[in-house]
Amino acid sequence: MKMSRSIRLGIGAIAVALAATACGGDESRSVTSSAENGNLVVGIKFDQPGLGLRNPDGTFSGFDVEVAKYVAGQLGVSEENIEFKESPSAQRETLIQNGEVDYIVATYSITDARKEKVDFAGPYFIAGQSLLVRADEAEITGPESLNGGKRLCSVTGSTPAQNVKDTYAQDVQLQEFDTYSACVEALRNGAVDAVTTDDIILAGYAAQSPGDFKVVGEPFTEELYGIGLAQGDEASRTAINDAIEDMIDSGAWAEAFEATVGASGYPLPDPPTVDRY
């Protein structure tokens, strides 16, 4: 028996729809739904000492890691049921949009441009942009001193290097790498003159290599670190905001900071107000 053309087209349309659903099922990922199922995939940095670091034994440490675990715990998911996924700066929005992670805690500054693609809970921390130089550097004391063709390194997909070029030093030579650890190695071997990103990140690298580097100048921006999640997931966003507030109010926020970043000498700041942006 022959099928009519309309029936064949209808079956074809259903097949396409089913295929699309199968391929893109994770794109509507909900943090609260994942938590109800008992597991979470959380994006962090793997190469930022004091914030998000994958240790040689495969464990993870840092302030962002502690925030991520606290939030998961408030959502009912224990640490052993968290899968940490590396989230380089340039890939964070894509990881969220593709449903590869439930949320990201990775020194993720809240910006208007990013809010066009993802939603944010928080902020859970306020940082400021600064500069890392070699310990014997005398000429570079802040962003204004980067003129004269100084070589400045930052990470692809981040905003700090462009901030310097737009506001302070138009003739600075920008070099971008995939990770800040690569920038730090370039600074160590003399390939660049300075590394720029948020002061708390730079303090971690300075602490990791005592006597090799120093953070110079006062912070010259304000960066609100948020937890990135899928757009439109208001229930999850509210739950994460509640978790951040509980972490701050309970004292766990300050304890986590001192246990991770405190060793770098970075002073304990005042906690942020959630939903400040």
Rank of each mutant, 00 (worst) to 15 (best):
K2Y: 11
S4N: 10
R5P: 09
R5H: 14
R8H: 06
G12E: 05
A13P: 10
V16R: 14
A17M: 12
T21W: 14
T21C: 13
A22I: 07
D26P: 09
E27I: 13
S30Q: 05
T32G: 07
T32C: 06
T32V: 10
A35W: 04
V41S: 15
V41T: 14
V42D: 07
G43Y: 04
G43R: 00
K45S: 15
Q48F: 10
G50F: 00
G50H: 03
T59Y: 10
T59M: 08
T59E: 13
F60L: 05
S61P: 07
G62S: 05
D64M: 11
E66V: 05
V67P: 01
V71L: 08
Q74D: 13
V77R: 02
S78F: 12
F84A: 04
K85E: 13
S89C: 10
R92V: 02
E93D: 11
E93S: 13
I96C: 03
Q97M: 12
Q97D: 09
N98Y: 15
D102F: 01
V105K: 02
V105A: 03
V105Y: 02
T107F: 12
T107C: 10
Y108H: 14
S109D: 13
T111D: 06
D112G: 11
A113V: 12
R114S: 11
K115F: 11
F120W: 11
A135C: 13
I140F: 06
T141W: 06
T141S: 08
L146P: 00
G149V: 06
L152D: 00
S154P: 02
S154E: 06
S154M: 02
V155Y: 00
V155H: 03
Q162V: 12
D166C: 03
D166M: 05
V172G: 07
V172Y: 03
L174K: 05
F177E: 11
Y180V: 10
S181W: 03
C183L: 04
C183W: 01
A191M: 09
A194V: 00
D199F: 09
I200H: 01
L202S: 05
A203G: 10
A203L: 11
A203F: 07
Q208W: 10
G211N: 07
F213E: 01
V215R: 00
G217M: 04
F220I: 01
T221C: 09
E222P: 08
L224W: 12
Y225R: 06
I227K: 01
Q231L: 12
Q231P: 05
G232K: 06
E234Y: 13
T238L: 09
T238E: 15
T238Q: 15
I240T: 08
N241Q: 09
I244Q: 03
D249R: 15
A254K: 12
A256P: 02
F257N: 03
T260G: 10
T260E: 08
A263R: 14
R276L: 13
R276M: 13
